[in-house]
Design a protein around this nucleic acid. Structure first.
Lengths: 143, 143
DNA sequence: TCTTAAATATGATTTTTATCATGAAATATT
DNA sequence: AATATTTCATGATAAAAATCATATTTAAGA
């Protein structure tokens, strides 16, 4: 459902949500290490996210990546849309082009409602809310 | 969530459920064409499924693939377990090894229950039941 | 204005997944 | 027994995804 890249991206953004701010930018190297993702690889993903305004960055000395307040209010699904694309999230489980509510594929009725629920959650939950869950100890981000 | 291979496998098995029986075996070529999957590729998948007793086959003239009655009573998830492996179906959405009910990752609580529901459905629904859905016109299998 | 520290852009390499090809083994028919 | 038809086993190739490398641009500070 999620690509490797998306998972890495979520981890990185969450890390920024927890540890960065406009006044406290973080260098790629210091993001890659704690979230345990290859530096050059996460660098590329961060670039994409930055270009699409999911996260913020400034270059040069004292530069780095960070999350502005408005960045933090975005729904989690925005990350996935950029990295994996809309299609991957919503396409039929059997990849049948012609599958839809009127002409459902055999798996459609079984999976559809759970799928909807998942998407709705990802739509509603903001990056900031996820970060708060971690801070409150309701969830964890090991390795 | 599902690999390409798994999707192909489900389509093939469903096709067999609808059109084959012990007395009416079907040759690979006549499976590949209607489900629109490359012949040599589906052949390999069918071999795997056959070896693991998800489907049945006999070789030589008049041979082919088919579903025995007991094959048809298996849950759909068996196909996915063979082709994708158990791990792919159940692993944490962020691929965090340490994620579990006690120490949930940030996405865990959001997604876990829907995920469970999906797995339960795939566990309970048999191949035969899916086929019946199609026969009744409750679902379709285009291309 | 020069140097340095950072992101950015681009592309190369590696690994994984998907696809294709071929020969060996098995069985039914003659 | 010989032959033809089919699955089965194995491995080769191609495509896509993941990972790595490098040169360019930007901004801060001396």
């Amino acid at each position: 459902m999620l690509s490797n890249s998306s998972k890495y991206a979520v981890k990185a953004v969450l890390f920024l949500a927890l540890h960065s701010s406009e006044e406290n930018k973080i260098v790629v190297k210091d993001i890659a290490a704690p979230i345990n993702v290859p530096l050059a690889y996460i660098a590329k993903l961060l670039q994409e996210l930055s270009k699409e305004n999911i996260i913020s960055s400034t270059r040069g000395p004292k530069g780095g990546f960070y999350l502005s307040d408005s960045n933090k209010e975005q729904p989690v699904i925005n990350i996935l849309k950029i990295i994996d694309g809309e299609k991957r999230l919503t396409s039929c489980m059997l990849s049948l082009e012609k599958c839809n509510e009127e002409k459902p594929c055999p798996l459609h009725n079984i999976l559809s409602s759970s799928r909807q629920t998942i998407l709705k959650s990802l739509q509603e939950k903001t990056i900031n809310e996820l970060a708060l869950d971690i801070e409150k100890g309701n969830s964890f981000l090991p390795l």
